[in-house]
Design a protein around this nucleic acid. Structure first.
Length: 276
DNA sequence: AGTCGCCTGGTA
DNA sequence: TACCAGGCGACT
């Protein structure tokens, strides 16, 4: 069983779907049953967004950003098990729904989250939004360049995989795509970042772009939790090369995939292709 | 740098 | 029934 969590591609897909479905709609009613998922407070959140129109949906790192009119925002983080469904009121029931945005036309945006780690945060102006977004590093597909990436890696002795997953440095890469990119680039997850050559950094840069774009192309990675906004699954989990494949053979060399913890996260690699 | 906590479904 | 999954902030 592979446990795929929302990372950049999955959040980007949700963003694109919601952009097409809810922009222009007015939030009529907000219902919730889990106060801790509402920031800054349940009442502040409900008062902030009710009666406003969704003007735009954006993504920054793994955050969804909803622009409202009159101008204000809320952001939404799916964390490990969050799902956003867009439904007509009479459509199927969804499990683990803790926040429901009902629009004026009675359609609904439902925030489902089994583990309740996710949240929605209302921000009354752009200043508050920028304060939150300022904490995130470069976007892999928009901001990162091979040179910038090499400079980042050169500046730290931390394990390469830990650097890839550090949202303050590069944003949007989680455990799955870090594992996949390192395998693709033949780089060992625990290599100190500053020991990578410029050529290796370039290879890893291309691998990151590649796995993110491929995941986008295949609808993201679903198995246990991640879903599209209509409830359907993505298919990139069927194309994982190392993630979850401990004991199976490496698709490049036939060697055995190993598993260990790196930075507290399950880490998969081929010891033959990804030498230290 | 490593560990814990927040939670709960699914598996060994 | 204990343990594992992991984004991320807090703590050590």
């Amino acid at each position: 069983m592979v446990v795929a969590m929302p990372e950049l591609p999955e959040v980007e897909i949700v963003k694109r779907e919601l952009e097409a479905k809810i922009v222009g709609k007015e939030i009529n009613v907000v219902r919730f049953d889990t106060p801790k998922m509402m920031r800054p407070s349940p009442s502040g959140f409900v008062a902030g967004v009710t009666g406003k129109e969704i003007k735009a949906v954006r993504r920054r790192a793994k955050l969804l950003v909803f622009e409202l009119s009159p101008l204000s925002y809320f952001v939404c983080h799916l964390k490990l098990t969050g799902r956003l469904f867009f439904r007509k009121p009479t459509e199927v029931q969804d499990n683990y729904v803790h926040i429901v945005f009902q629009f004026q036309d009675k359609t609904e945006l439902r925030f489902s989250d089994s583990r309740k780690f996710g949240f929605c945060h209302y921000l009354k102006n752009e200043e508050e939004l920028l304060e939150i977004l300022a904490g995130f590093g470069l976007e892999p597909l928009d901001d990162l360049t091979p040179d910038a990436f090499y400079r980042i890696l050169s500046g730290t002795r931390r394990k390469t995989k830990v650097v890839l997953m550090d949202q303050k440095i590069i944003s949007g890469i989680g455990n799955i795509y870090a594992n996949e990119a390192l395998w693709l680039a033949n780089i060992n997850p625990v290599r100190p970042a500053n020991e990578l050559s410029k050529e290796e950094a370039g290879r890893l840069f291309l691998a990151i772009e590649n796995v993110i774009k491929e995941a986008l192309r295949h609808g993201g990675s679903s198995d246990q939790w991640y879903r599209h906004t209509d409830g359907s699954k993505g298919h990139y989990q069927e194309r994982f090369k190392v993630y979850g494949r401990v004991g199976e053979s490496c698709l490049k060399c036939g060697g055995e995939i190993e598993r260990d913890k790196v930075g507290g996260r399950g880490t998969f690699w081929c010891p033959k292709c990804q030498k230290q």
